Simulated scan of single mutants.
Amino acid sequence: MTTTRRRLLTAGVVAVGSTFLTPGQAFADGYGSGALGPWEALSKAISTLTQIRPVLETDGLFMFGDSIAVQDGSSLAKRLYSRTGDVIAVHNWSGRPTAPAVDALEQWAQTYGLPSRILMATGSNDIFTPPVFAAQVDRAMSIAGPSRKVYWVNTQVSRTGQSTDVQLADQRNSAWVNLQLADAQRRHPNLIVIRWAEFLAAKPTRLTAYLRDGVHTTAPLGQDARNELIVQAIEAT
């Protein structure tokens, strides 16, 4: 087993203790996390053309994310600008899985063109159907092309409001999503994975300190920690 896989699998069990499901149990009810509900009417943050233009003019970043990004995006934009001078345009939508996020990436690529750096903060809502995730990562990388850097925040979900079995399924499916992302990084040298799951797994107390419901960041502690990981990755490359 590679070091990356070992770390991801370790991260995948830290939140759920010693309980483990057999493969038969895991797939008796889909993938165990339930079904993704309607998301199209949920909150969103989408930059206007006025906000997009300076990003293209200065070669800033485009960001595509889910509810964590809706919550944390404004704080991230301020932190990034203060550290690097980069501006960011966002297409963040609560509850959205990766496939329609990549659709949005494709739409902006066709409508506006793309800057040299893309930030993908999506994957948490793919725990409901984990096998579809890898193809969407490859599609995003194809749209971005080999010359652009794509930063992708990996996933940590274990919804504390759900039963123990569902929390376990969430965690297992998060690890599944993250393994697909790690595999994609080997295929795409310009893909930079931001290892949020491993950061949380490094100290068990972080799961409650940095996440308010097993998914979304606490503010400001979790929000600052996740955004700092993102900014550090951008600074390093």
Rank of each mutant, 00 (worst) to 15 (best):
194 I>Q: 01
61 L>N: 04
101 A>I: 05
60 G>E: 07
223 Q>N: 11
129 T>Y: 13
122 T>G: 12
25 Q>S: 14
137 V>C: 01
73 G>N: 08
71 Q>L: 12
209 A>T: 05
68 I>A: 02
64 F>S: 05
123 G>S: 10
149 K>I: 05
76 L>G: 00
70 V>Y: 03
48 T>N: 01
38 P>T: 09
2 T>N: 15
36 L>T: 08
163 S>G: 10
233 A>K: 03
31 Y>K: 05
97 P>Q: 15
108 W>G: 02
151 Y>V: 03
2 T>K: 12
19 T>A: 15
237 T>P: 01
164 T>L: 14
155 T>I: 04
35 A>P: 11
152 W>H: 09
102 V>D: 15
62 F>R: 05
57 E>Q: 11
88 I>R: 04
71 Q>S: 06
4 T>Q: 11
75 S>M: 03
94 S>P: 09
98 T>C: 15
185 Q>A: 06
76 L>D: 01
102 V>I: 15
146 P>D: 07
175 A>Q: 01
159 R>Y: 07
100 P>S: 14
185 Q>M: 01
40 E>N: 08
48 T>P: 06
20 F>C: 10
132 V>P: 07
43 S>Q: 06
112 Y>S: 09
174 S>H: 00
155 T>L: 02
196 W>R: 04
59 D>S: 04
144 A>E: 10
95 G>E: 15
207 L>Q: 12
3 T>F: 12
98 T>Y: 14
204 P>T: 03
131 P>R: 00
49 L>N: 08
127 I>W: 03
39 W>N: 12
212 R>W: 04
125 N>H: 15
75 S>D: 06
126 D>P: 08
191 L>T: 05
21 L>G: 02
151 Y>E: 08
212 R>M: 10
220 P>D: 04
236 A>D: 09
15 A>R: 13
12 G>S: 12
123 G>V: 10
231 V>G: 04
137 V>W: 00
234 I>V: 06
78 K>R: 14
84 T>A: 03
30 G>N: 10
107 Q>V: 08
201 A>E: 00
123 G>F: 13
53 R>Y: 03
178 N>M: 02
3 T>Y: 09
161 G>T: 04
77 A>Q: 14
112 Y>M: 09
95 G>S: 13
50 T>A: 09
209 A>M: 07
235 E>V: 07
26 A>K: 04
205 T>N: 07
185 Q>L: 01
189 P>F: 01
227 N>W: 07
20 F>T: 13
118 I>T: 10
119 L>F: 14
180 Q>G: 04
21 L>F: 09
112 Y>Q: 09
172 R>E: 04
152 W>E: 10
99 A>L: 14
117 R>N: 09
209 A>N: 06
